[in-house]
Design a protein around this nucleic acid. Structure first.
Lengths: 178, 178, 178, 178
DNA sequence: GATGAATGAGGGTTCATTCAT
DNA sequence: GATGAATGAACCCTCATTCAT
């Protein structure tokens, strides 16, 4: 049943987010999902495979290709405005998941395409590069991607809510980015 | 002997930095330190205690009180300049250690005073607060501390060297901070 | 369907011969047979039952009663000649199967009538006994059966081909048997 | 303690001989040895390693080099007489161990130098070769080694005692070997 | 007649830690 | 002060088998 797999994935992400990969045991996941431990291994070949599938499943909200196409055509200031807003919103929405990914990004068992750098930094850099190319302008995409990634990291890692001042924050960072 | 304890601490930090707390085993540490595994438990009551002592030992390079006293008296622009430069330099020097702390900051077993937020963010915020109070000016210390922490996070987490352009970076961030 | 059962039996013997009983898993057999694992348990009550049926099915080439009737009437030298040739040929043809039976003969789960001793040694001894009785001669059937069984064991267990010199071998062993 | 390792080895060989490698569990071995299961893994890196060490330990009664030096100088008939007697005696004494080795010789996990062919057949062949060379005579060492190995196999695999008639058996086989 | 879904029982192995010396 | 020896608890994972359809 598709249902079972989903139950396991949802239980697993909850625990992985809470305790990280190593500290989460397969039996805990099974218990939370309400299935036998074996069932978990029938649906996924190994714990690490479950981990990856879980991440991918809950990570699917990336910048979709169409959205990015629209954004890059904007003039630079608006481009960054939208890029920032979009990334910030996702970061806040997926806070726990991103925390997990950051934590596990230092480990060897996480495949490269699921590491923080790839998921966040490289995506931003790419968007900036495409934008620059489209408008035929020069831009230090590495620097700017790093600045934005730093902002996102601070939102995810440092406690406290900033929901009220997203607009402000964007304005501030535009000062550096432009 | 003091020597033995130090050997263990040095071996442990090397492994903790490389693989994190959970993935590092006590026997590995003992082997690298060149002592028996038991010895480790004679010197430290438990693995987690060794972990904490190790962190504290290698983390001792905090803003020393005297230095901060000097800095806060500077006028605001210079204060931030020096603060930024100092924090950036430490971040780059202690990259691996900070990575470790970030990684483990999401776990429950790390005491609060060793978590990233405390070690980096709160220290910066405090410095800003003292500076503001001294000069009797208003300042959003939370916001600025978050911005700086975000910068440091980006330096530690995202690969690539920025050593050449530290001056530039500082100038840029000053645009937001002031 | 008869077909399904046969597919399972053929797949199973292939794997059993290759890896032995314990090392072969039911899912492997099912995969090789191209059926679901459950189907295997519908056709056979348990793995061990499948094992036994498989053995019996592929073992059916025993000395048929008629053939033996003809042989025992021969004069002793010819009797042994034919007996040896027949047993050697079967041993070489069923090498893998015999190896499997030898291997599993040391286990408790194999029923007595499928063990090597029964299948090979006892059959030979019986043939010799019948022959002796028919001709009213004395003969140490145990000793001779053991010698022949030893020869067959050496052919099955020790690598190397002896196909060219079967005639020679028979002549040699006749020296002891007569 | 050396003692513990020996206890484990002795317990293990008893169980391995009785049930074979796969069917014997590490917890059984530990229980029989009177130690915790972990202890077993402290002394041996893995089950298979314990298995091999156990085999080697209990197998140490091979033809020692000096003995063989004496034997090969005998004239051919006496050489075979002594070789046969020696091998038969060992086979009878190490019946269970040889059975185990035969059983596991069909598996992949047994290293080549512990397989039946190597331990029994190749040793005999080598002795014959050395003898032939020494006396500058021709001899089909492969054939004769196979014959002797077959005899030993029959002694080990087929039930029944032949202790009384070892002399006889030797005389008989000499007919083929010479 | 055949199968997808699920599992209880147990497998080898690793972990941090304690005990006795 | 340091260690060799031993372990309880837990880990991931695999097995043959059953249930419901």
């Amino acid at each position: 049943m598709k249902d079972t797999k989903e139950k396991i994935i949802n239980a697993s992400i909850k625990l992985f987010e809470k305790k990280g990969y190593s500290e989460t045991t397969t039996i805990e996941i099974a218990n939370l999902a309400g299935v036998a431990e074996v069932t978990l291994f029938r649906k996924f070949n190994s714990k690490i495979e479950l981990f990856e599938e879980s991440l991918r499943y809950h990570l699917s909200v990336q910048i979709d290709k169409e959205k990015i196409q629209k954004i890059i055509k904007l003039k630079t200031q608006d481009f960054y405005k939208y890029l920032l807003r979009n990334r910030i919103e996702i970061a806040l929405k997926k806070k726990k998941l991103l925390r997990l990914i950051i934590k596990e990004s230092f480990s060897d068992y996480l495949p490269k395409d699921l590491k923080f750098t790839e998921i966040v930094y490289e995506h931003i850099k790419e968007a900036i590069d495409i934008h620059s190319k489209y408008h035929n302008i020069k831009s230090n995409s590495e620097k700017n991607a790093r600045i934005i990634a730093g902002l996102l990291l601070s939102l995810v890692i440092i406690p406290g809510t900033i929901e009220d001042s997203i607009g402000e924050i964007i304005e501030e960072y535009l000062k550096i980015l432009l």
